[in-house]
Computed example of a mutant assay.
Amino acid sequence: MTRISLADIADEKPVKLTVEMPAKLHRDLQAYCVALSQGAAAIPSPERVIPAMIERFIASDRSYARQRRKPPRS
């Protein structure tokens, strides 16, 4: 894995991204949002669910966590 250097990103303002994905993945994501709501009146939009999914994925990636714990190389 290459060294990741993002220390310069200081502000926490939301960043708008445009992402292309296959139509099947989008349909699966919409179905996931429906299942996530479990009968609630409001179904979350994919735009609201995707950031949480990515955060959870990064937090659960063990090899990435090991890489982050290593001291930086000079």
Rank of each mutant, 00 (worst) to 15 (best):
M1R: 11
M1D: 12
R3D: 15
R3G: 09
I4Y: 12
I4N: 08
I4P: 01
S5W: 10
L6H: 01
L6F: 07
L6V: 07
L6G: 08
A7L: 11
D8L: 07
D8W: 06
I9L: 13
A10Q: 14
D11C: 09
D11K: 11
D11E: 14
D11F: 04
E12F: 12
E12I: 09
E12C: 14
K13L: 13
K13P: 00
P14L: 11
P14M: 09
V15Y: 04
V15T: 12
V15P: 00
K16Q: 13
K16N: 12
K16E: 12
L17R: 13
L17K: 14
T18D: 10
T18Y: 07
T18G: 09
T18E: 13
V19S: 00
V19D: 02
E20H: 14
M21E: 04
P22A: 15
P22H: 14
K24R: 13
K24W: 05
K24H: 05
K24D: 11
K24Q: 11
L25T: 15
L25W: 05
H26L: 13
R27G: 10
R27H: 14
R27W: 07
R27Y: 05
D28F: 03
D28I: 03
L29I: 04
Q30R: 15
Q30N: 10
Q30V: 09
A31P: 01
Y32S: 05
Y32I: 04
Y32K: 06
C33N: 00
C33V: 04
V34P: 00
V34L: 07
V34N: 03
L36W: 01
S37D: 01
S37C: 04
S37T: 03
S37Y: 00
S37F: 01
Q38I: 06
Q38L: 08
Q38D: 15
Q38G: 09
G39F: 03
G39E: 03
A40N: 11
A41Y: 05
A41V: 08
A41N: 11
A41T: 11
A41L: 10
A42R: 14
A42N: 10
A42H: 08
I43E: 02
I43M: 06
P44Y: 00
P44M: 07
S45D: 08
S45Y: 02
P46K: 03
P46Y: 02
E47T: 15
V49Y: 01
V49F: 01
I50S: 00
I50T: 02
A52S: 14
I54H: 05
I54M: 12
E55G: 08
E55S: 13
E55N: 06
E55H: 07
R56V: 01
R56D: 07
R56Y: 10
F57S: 09
F57K: 08
F57D: 07
F57E: 09
A59I: 03
D61K: 02
D61L: 03
R62W: 04
S63P: 00
S63L: 10
S63T: 13
S63F: 05
A65T: 08
A65S: 07
A65M: 10
A65I: 09
A65R: 13
R66D: 14
Q67K: 05
Q67I: 02
Q67E: 13
Q67L: 05
R68F: 04
R68A: 14
R68Y: 02
R69T: 06
R69P: 00
K70G: 01
P71V: 03
P71Y: 02
P71K: 06
P72F: 08
R73T: 13
S74I: 06
S74K: 12
